[in-house]
């Protein structure tokens, strides 16, 4: 290979028309297919969102919590997760960069920090999922599978508040339609917010409730979703889950590469291209998150 001269044309074999190694090319081709897969998922999400319009839950009502803080803090926690992932992308480039300079100790340092960042992201995602599954305000489902929420003074309240219990005290709550209905009847300051996000005052709310209420929803899973349209939860679990699985595999691959770096495999090989290849994968995971962040949490 090293004797390859310019006389050989790019198309006669034995040359590298792309000036990139086989491994790196294949990583890129894999990433293209993976990018198209994620675009298909996010387009599917977009389809449902356009289809359900006003009924689709808005992210500010869904992701409102931050560990150890009370009250509503929309977007803050995902912003933190985004920061963690960007940071781990930076440490990854640094590791690749020191790999080019054959500085083993610095590669080990920055690769380890990348793994720590990946693990922190996975932990945050577990917390986020936990909160999403546990639910926040609880809601009531109608016969036509629409979801409405308890409101107070034209602002979202919660079933817990109406029933006078703490929704986050760590115990499991169960309410049936009758008891929530009775509470709504007797507390005149409460109204409801129906699925298209318009508020009904007490009188209209009671009427709507008695006519339509079928089930009290607590939390979100693949069957029910207290935040609104059921598909929202399905997409959330599927897309963030698929992304989280990529992060998880990334952490495992990074660990394997780190062990090889420590053992001196790449030092012996004469180049750290393996770190570069896993780096490509790691940045791709960050890239996907940038889009997930926008379409699930911002838009």
């Amino acid at each position: 290979m090293s004797q390859t001269t310019n006389e050989i044309s790019n198309w006669e074999g034995g040359n590298r028309p792309y000036v990139a190694s086989y491994g790196k090319l294949m990583m890129w081709f894999f990433l293209i297919t993976d990018a198209l897969t994620f675009s298909a998922f996010l387009s599917g999400y977009g389809f449902s969102r356009f289809k359900y319009g006003e009924v689709w839950p808005s992210a500010e009502d869904v992701f409102t919590h931050f560990p150890f803080l009370h009250g509503d803090h929309p977007l803050l926690f995902v912003a933190l997760m985004t920061f963690i992932l960007i940071m781990s992308s930076v440490t990854m480039v640094l590791a690749v960069n020191y790999g080019h300079k054959m500085q083993k100790k610095k590669v080990i340092l920055w690769l380890s920090l990348t793994i720590v960042g990946g693990a922190m992201f996975l932990g945050s995602q577990a917390w986020e999922w936990g909160h999403f599954i546990h639910g926040d305000k609880a809601a009531i489902q109608t016969h036509t599978l629409e979801v409405f929420h308890i409101a107070k003074d034209n602002e979202l309240s919660s079933v817990y508040e109406l029933m006078g219990v703490d929704g986050h005290d760590g115990t499991h709550h169960h309410f049936n339609v009758q008891e929530v209905g009775e509470a709504l009847h007797s507390n005149t300051e409460y109204g409801i917010r129906i699925s298209d996000k318009t508020y009904l005052d007490h009188e209209a709310a009671v009427k709507y409730y008695d006519k339509n209420a079928q089930e009290v929803l607590i939390g979100a899973n693949l069957h029910n979703n207290e935040y609104g349209q059921g598909l929202f939860a399905d997409y959330f679990f599927f897309i963030t889950g698929f992304h989280g699985f990529h992060v998880f595999s990334g952490v495992i691959i990074l660990l394997i590469i780190l062990i090889n770096v420590i053992k001196g495999t790449y030092e012996k090989r004469g180049h750290y291209e393996m770190v570069e290849k896993v780096g490509l994968y790691w940045h791709f995971v960050d890239l996907v998150w940038v889009f997930v962040f926008t379409f699930f949490y911002l838009v």
Partner: peptide
């Protein structure tokens, strides 16, 4: 291309 088709269709479904 995919986005154009799918989102147009989503709007129509709505």
């Amino acid at each position: 291309y995919l986005l154009f088709i799918v989102l147009t269709e989503g709007d129509y479904a709505s």
